[in-house]
Design a protein around this nucleic acid. Structure first.
Lengths: 216, 216
DNA sequence: ACCTGAACACCGTTCAAGT
DNA sequence: ACCTGAACACCGTTCAAGT
């Protein structure tokens, strides 16, 4: 009584979609594998034909989240002049933050702190080798440093710092947006501050070299 | 056959200690409540006289971790001149990073990403209102801004950015230290870079105003 | 009052049997 | 080949009974 075996990749996607919705509704430890198979209209055991475990499913969800974000950003960045590195950096920062915020609930539910000590495939740490999102930033910082746009002695360390600044700040905004509305004005202020940090740290703001200074 | 009912606060601590060891050995989802009660020499049910659930136990462990860190830092900061805000900021950053690193495994196991959507009491987000550790930083930034040591238009936003930069960077180092040794030299380089970011962002490095510049 | 541990409920995972 | 769902194993949590 299975009308027509669905194409396998499509079935996998259906399971992922169902899981994403459930994560939003009940949190990671709040939904069961059976919930997922019910929503996807397959038997419980079928789940294990597509995923090794519930935990691996969650990892796949995180990967998909990151990949989607990276794809959207790449598209937006492609339209910028290729050699304006400070501009690309600013845009990457803003897009990342807004991207996280736009999918705040899912991001929140997926990357909540808690849980397991298992190896963390797509885990946070800003290691460009393990994180496609951080890899984008690394490219910008690297190229911008080589072209002399950024005054950084160690570009790959700078990536670590800046990635984490962005990511943590996004977490913070997501958190604030939960109870009660997060005003657009506030979001903009945070983004402006983030960009200021980037500029000062990379010493990009050189172009306007004098700015009068009140003593002490 | 219970020789002498132990003082209750002491029993709670015994359970926490046992749990901390188990978290290190097996990870949060790797140990059972029974493991804890066995290690603490009490019956399984006794656990629920002291904690509402396994999850609440984990939260208590996180709280204890943060509190210990804060206490150690406060002691170290007390010995600095009270009005050298850039110095205090630098020291806070360095102590935080080294503090996390010194207890890397436990930090790692406790704050691993994964798990539940339940409310996050001691959660990361750099909101000084909810995080005693970030509150320390907030005090430094606030006082330093008022005294004119830092050039920040919005000190409380700066706290958010800087706290996350530090925390994420610590996570990164913890991660790196896992497989293979993390050299002292590398740790020092990261700390130096972190301090540089702080100085540039807060515009503390004014004292040495000229630094020759290669054009473009 | 505080502690015990058997019993319960729930869910992740497996597997023999179907098409 | 792919799917099914009953059965199993494992734990978190509860509770009636002890001291």
């Amino acid at each position: 009584m299975k009308p027509r075996t669905a194409p396998p990749e499509q079935r996998r996607t259906a399971l992922l979609d169902a899981a994403a919705e459930l994560v939003l509704a009940k949190g990671i430890s709040g939904f069961t594998v059976e919930d997922v198979t019910n929503a996807a209209q397959v038997a419980k055991g079928t789940f294990y034909l597509y995923f090794r475990s519930k935990e691996q499913l969650v990892r796949a969800l995180r990967e998909r989240f990151i990949n989607d974000l990276v794809a959207r950003q790449r598209a937006a960045l492609r339209r910028l002049p290729a050699d304006d590195w400070p501009g690309r950096l600013r845009r990457w920062m803003e897009l990342s933050l807004r991207g996280y915020l736009a999918h705040a609930e899912l991001h929140d539910a997926l990357f909540q702190h808690d849980g397991d000590a298992a190896e963390s495939a797509t885990g946070h740490p800003a290691d460009p080798a393990h994180n496609g999102h951080a890899a984008e930033l690394a490219e910008i910082i690297q190229a911008g440093s080589e072209s002399g746009a950024f005054a950084l002695t160690d570009p790959s360390l700078a990536v670590v710092l800046l990635y984490n600044t962005m990511h943590g700040t996004a977490d913070y905004l997501v958190e604030r947006s939960r109870g009660g509305a997060l005003s657009k004005a506030e979001t903009n202020r945070v983004i402006a501050e983030l960009l200021k940090l980037c500029e000062r740290y990379t010493e990009t703001s050189r172009e306007a070299p004098l700015r009068s200074e009140g003593a002490r």
